[in-house]
Amino acid sequence: MAIVLDHVSYIYEKDTEMAAFALKDICLTIPDGQFIGLIGHTGSGKSTLVQHLNGLLAPTGGHIYYNGKDIHADGFDKKELRSRVGLVFQYPEHQLFEVDVFTDVCFGPKNLGLSRKETELRAFEALRQVGFPEEYFYQSPFDLSGGQKRRVAIAGVLAMKPDVLVLDEPTAGLDPKGRDEILDRIAALKAETGITVVLVSHSMEDIAKYVDRIIVMNRGSVLFDDVPAEVFRHDAELEAVGLAAPQMTYIMRTLRRRGMEVGTDVTTLEEAEREILRVLGK
């Protein structure tokens, strides 16, 4: 079970003079159970890429295979695909519409043609998975805080029981605590269910803390695709494309430049702390 992108290209406004490459010859495999971070600055093609994963956009060149089948071949069930590859967009305001939270989360499973009982069971389960408090189930989704709206939006997709969960900048606009809560929830969900997660983000700090593989996009191409420590070694290239290594990496480099014998392959707070304590002999 995997998503395979085989030489995928996408051209915006094809056949006009404004035609522009959004994706250029992308080859990727997303196997089951990985926690992947997808990074790139605005306009790097990462949002276009994730919309290809569930067939919302069709590539202008190349093929996409889900479990070995070409998703744009005749007779392929796209609706089924969209329930298998769940895509949560950046702004929950773009999908919340029902009178209350619970009914809104039921929308996805209902569209799959499930029985009422099964629909409600799934909605309930999904809301539990995102840690949404039960006493707000029958509140209007529009009255919620940003963080809670985000949870409901994620639950709305989880209720379809996808194998792959793609989150497009799930923390944009949240305050630091709200951001940590959402990311911790996703990590817990990943640990609990083994679901494949693709996390689109701008923040190296977020990515470094959670994922086991990073894909860096630039101008529609894949610049790096590796484990975090390897990717962050290329900090000069990252900076050249408007990104950066996590701040911890830079802090450790400064310490090293100042004569402290610390390793610089450090991306998270915990690693940095361990490394400094090691050097200090504690």
Binding site: D175, Q247, I251, L269, E273
Partner: peptide, 17 residues
Amino acid sequence: RLDVPQVTMLAHSLQKK
């Protein structure tokens, strides 16, 4: 519900150790 700069956070946890 707020953050501190990463280096401040690091210094703080070293302090605790």
